[in-house]
Nucleic acid binder design. Structure first.
Lengths: 326, 326
DNA sequence: TATAGTCATAGATGATTATCTATGGGGTGG
DNA sequence: CCACCCCATAGATAATCATCTATGACTATA
């Protein structure tokens, strides 16, 4: 952009000057303006003088004891009003932004978490229509990569990465259960054990998956080795495969919880495997106010919507740890 | 939550800061901006810092070696663009105003002058559609009152008021002639003299009129006393009255010059009485650029449109006298 | 014409700004 | 791992700003 320095010394123009000038035009008196703005009359007089120098043209004249804007002064007054009100709009936007009622944040979800997060994000979005949330979804490994690159504001992991910079709040239990087809032959049998099922075919998620990793860790510690496995990349596909008698699987109870879906949970000793979802943020990262607001919202609704008072506590601590960042 | 009365320190906001910031966003580099604006890199860095303090929020962040505006920064950038371009529009307006191509001025005309001024104001208005001219009309006395009160930018008098502050440029001759009805019985008679006509009824303008005043002064110096007079307040009414055989009159030749109008000029010794119209301005008054432009325009067109080279000179001098006022 | 109110100007003084030079820290690409 | 950009910070300085108090000029109005 080419700047024409000729007509007006824009560089020296200050919003303060415009504020004072606008008030002078409104009151028609330097003294009045001085009082209203808690200044002395000479101060206002000098401000006017300087503004006139910036504009390069007289902007007010005396008329019947009042100060009246000249033709140029009127145009300048309109400009002032215009500019000041626009700056004010921006200021209000800033306030809204700081309150978290407006703006944007991004959250990265491990695949399985997408079965529960909507229950938090949905109502939050309803209550904060001006907030724009980007939801990233991937398996554990993909989310770890994003985390490494600081790509998102908040993450949800069942097993948070270990790092000094990490703040993690376990907010919701994520029980892993063994599921089989609706009319599975072992259904109802007492004393069923995993050892008895090791000959069955198990459908597993891909290696990067946390669900798979947790299950395999448990198998290892229990000294069990599976005979037959098959890899399927999504929880939903696994659920459908189980329903179709293709095998058994270990899934988050949240995946199978809702509605009749052709699968059933098998009561096995040692199950459900306990795990929890964590909100994970970097201690050092300055979260957008909207993200803070979301976490606050989560904290408030956890107890009632999910009956997870412990989660509420954990989120409260997380928020606390983030506050002094200011 | 703490409520901050002001989200942004608007008072300290400068257009300079916005200019610099806008350029930083465009180039994505402090160094580049520093070069473009002929500053050093630390200067730009500090400006950015100050702007951030004013806004109270980070406005840029590093990303792949570039500086990228944050969410708030983007909003601020838009604001900057907006404000700067508006200031620029005003600046352009100022330029136009100073060139006289835009704006307003007022001119006060003595009644008789309204017969010729349109021939100047008309074309000027055509050539400068953005200039808004207020034309005030009245008889000499009324115009003198306006002059005293500094109500107009320019005046047209045939006899300028005497005042140290007055600048007057005689720009056009205003011959006063004796007129009678079209078929007046003395028409064509050689050696006709005013002395012979003093028994006729003369139609005169009101006492404040300059035309009347000039005529009466001439009568006085010639030692002639009229027998019968009648007062009529407008030139036009007088012309019609003369055409209707109600008497004779002394009028500006400009009043009777155009078109067949039922009156004729009577050739009398001593006539036409010489007088001139003057543009009159106050030396001390700062004329709006538009008024200056009008006078310049008049100067340029006098010679060709009216064949009055002397008037051209006089107006040129007037303009000259006004110039150092800056 | 005296009085009060309103502006303008002068002089003084911290505070803030606009800049510069010098220097240090962090990445990026060889 | 080194050289090279790029940015941030420190320190310095002249200019400008934001203010104030004191005072003078001008203008209505009592």
């Amino acid at each position: 952009m080419i700047i024409y320095g000729v007509a007006m010394k824009v560089r020296q123009l200050t919003f303060r000057l415009l504020q004072v000038y606008a008030d002078v035009v409104r009151t028609g008196s330097l003294t009045a303006t001085a009082n209203r703005l808690h200044l002395t009359q000479p101060t206002v007089s000098q401000q006017l003088k300087r503004l006139r120098e910036i504009v390069g043209e007289p902007i007010v004249r005396h008329e019947e004891g009042r100060l009246v804007p000249t033709e140029v002064g009127q145009a300048l007054y309109q400009l002032s009003q215009d500019l000041l009100s626009r700056a004010d709009v921006f200021s209000q936007y800033l306030e809204e932004y700081n309150r978290g009622g407006r703006g944007h944040f991004s959250i990265g979800l491990v695949n399985t978490a997408q079965y529960v997060l909507p229950r938090l994000l949905g109502p939050f979005g309803q209550a904060n229509p001006q907030v724009d949330v980007t939801v990233e979804i991937g398996n554990r490994q993909q989310m770890l990569n994003r985390f490494e690159r600081h790509e998102d504001d908040i993450y949800v992991f069942s097993h948070p990465p270990i790092d000094d910079d990490v703040l993690a709040a376990p907010f919701l239990s994520n029980p892993l259960v063994v599921v089989g087809p609706q009319h599975y032959r072992w259904a109802g049998v007492e004393g069923l054990s995993m050892d008895a099922l090791k000959e069955e075919r198990f459908l597993l998620r891909e290696p990067g998956s946390a669900t798979r990793h947790t299950f395999e860790a448990w198998l290892y510690s229990a000294g069990i080795e599976l005979r037959s496995t098959q890899q399927i990349a999504s929880n939903e596909a696994i659920r459908l495969a189980v329903a179709s008698n293709m095998g058994l699987a270990v899934l988050s109870r949240h995946v199978v919880a809702d509605s009749p879906n052709g699968v059933q949970e098998l009561p096995l000793p040692g199950f459900p495997l306990k795990s929890r979802w964590h909100f994970v943020v970097r201690r050092q990262r300055r979260l957008p106010p909207a993200a803070i607001r979301f976490l606050s919202y989560v904290q408030a609704s956890l107890a009632q919507a999910f009956d997870e008072p412990e989660g509420e506590m954990a989120v409260a601590e997380l928020l606390q740890a983030l506050k002094p960042e200011r």
